[in-house]
Write a protein that binds this DNA or RNA. Sequence first.
DNA 1: CGGCGCCTTGAGAGTAATCAACGATAGTGG
DNA 2: CCACTATCGTTGATTACTCTCAAGGCGCCG
Lengths: 267, 267
Amino acid sequence: MIDAPPSSCVVSSSWSDEPERSVDHPLVRKLQGLANLTATDVAALQAISSSARMFGPHADLIREGEVLGDELIILEGIACRYKQRRTGARQIIAYVLPGDLCGADVPYMSRMDHAVGTLSTCLVARIPHQAWTALLARHPKVAFGLRLSKQAEEATAREWIMNLGCRSATERMAHLFCELVVRLAAVGLVQQGSYALPLTQLDLAETLGLSNVHVNRVLKELRQQGLVAFDGKRLTLLKHQRLIDIAEFSSNYLRPVPVPTGMRASE
Amino acid sequence: MIDAPPSSCVVSSSWSDEPERSVDHPLVRKLQGLANLTATDVAALQAISSSARMFGPHADLIREGEVLGDELIILEGIACRYKQRRTGARQIIAYVLPGDLCGADVPYMSRMDHAVGTLSTCLVARIPHQAWTALLARHPKVAFGLRLSKQAEEATAREWIMNLGCRSATERMAHLFCELVVRLAAVGLVQQGSYALPLTQLDLAETLGLSNVHVNRVLKELRQQGLVAFDGKRLTLLKHQRLIDIAEFSSNYLRPVPVPTGMRASE
DNA sequence: CGGCGCCTTGAGAGTAATCAACGATAGTGG
DNA sequence: CCACTATCGTTGATTACTCTCAAGGCGCCG
């Protein structure tokens, strides 16, 4: 609900002070890891998201039941998809990180079965549906990269089911931290095992299917064991391998492996 | 691992004794609810899945890490997507019901991040990748219906995250039963609130993130309250509305709501 | 008939939730 | 400028939901 005044193009933000936004548009950065974008692909993406708007923390971007026409690109900050029970309890379904988009699936829009909201302050570009589909049609490599990216999102949802269904509280949290370091690294937001994570403990609780009190205790334990440092703003993985072991984390699901040597046949 | 001898075309099975398979190919049936298939669409789907094979319960159809070339269509029985921990604990990620498919996403295949296996005996058609893409190209309404169907699958995954993250054991089970009645009804497999559900209690446990012992107790409770009847083969919803209330179930996520009056999506 | 898989039930343990209170921090308004 | 309020983090005590372990029963198949 708290909206900063709309700001167009180059905006300076609290957690990002690169000299020039255009050189590291997070979506461009992500897609460059997935497809060989041409210079015009990059230019088109930058142009289309040149105007963006800031939202305060815990603001709704899309409400449940809404029919979504436009495409949203998160440029900075962390947003989420979530659902709520009648009791008010809410479950976060997915994190939407810089370079991630949310919108109706390209050619068919339908009613949202969940809401999308910011967790931290976010810089968000909104792209009219038509402009977006036009871009995809003219830039097949972008479309290709986005499909790979979507597959990774689906795999992430599966991994979250796994996480909630059969890991302990500590394991879940370790898994989340490991996942985020990989996803954020793909958009250049990790510096030596440390990344901005402007979430409250309640946010984490709603992500991991735990109570905020228990999140606090698990976090305390991870800190005392020297595994992570976390102050509500930034998370540092102090013993990354230990966390990976605890969580049984494998980053495979996040990177669409290119089809191997023997192409196309089942192997 | 237990494979019945390959059987082509019309196979009689224990839980389905319709006179003629072709009249209710479950995928055709499902898609007819999503798109206006033409007669040739239907014929193409029937032709392409005319040869199918039986698998015994708890057989692997696709292994994790495999590169999947072909498309699988479940014609009868219940299969699942699942993942396993090193401890052996397994989490079922999704149910694959008659009329559902599993395969790599159409144009790009990649390594499976999860496995697919049967839960009950299943009749499965395997379609070579090339034939499948050819069919989609020549039958756009089929492709359209499948996209809607895929959106519903994604929404289902989100709902499962919700289920595991913030519902109690009883609520989860009620929710699952409510979901299945809607999904199975879409392929004509529900008779007056009753449907075949050939699952063990351990299968349910691995679905709901519970222990088999606790599943047994929850089931007992639901039975004693007269809400459901279940014998390991078939489930009957005796007080459907009560179950819906318990689970806070809404079927919205399962049916892609057609874009409202103000159209604009390409169809 | 014996073994095996699955269901059932009891007992005890443990993980995580709830309830409650206090401290710290930050933004607000007088 | 500082009390004032709200939000968030922290901790303790208690409750409870669910798990694990264990044993017995039932039905099916070789």
